[in-house]
Amino acid sequence: MQRRQKGILQNIAQRLDIPQDIVLDLPRITMLGNKQLLIENHKGIIEYTSSLVRVKLNQGELYVHGHNLLLGNLQTEQILIEGTIAEVKYGT
């Protein structure tokens, strides 16, 4: 039922040309080279070290590997990860 609803919503969003992240409550991940990574619409931090940041998302979590990682900005809506990013990975 939920899957079907999602499919319909996605269909409508595509047709009406509405950004899907708003309709489907998806995270928007913006990367600036390997220096900055901005995650909007996150659900909190699971783990943070200087080499790994795990961010909880709506579906699963996001692994960010790298070194000298800093959280430049931490708000309800967004997380800004700074440093040298080596790998971004989705995990469920």
Partner: peptide, 20 residues
Amino acid sequence: PEKFINLCVAERIYLWGLSK
């Protein structure tokens, strides 16, 4: 410490320049 961060985020407490 991550729990503390999440609580802060939930409370809309603005944090920046985090490092470990």
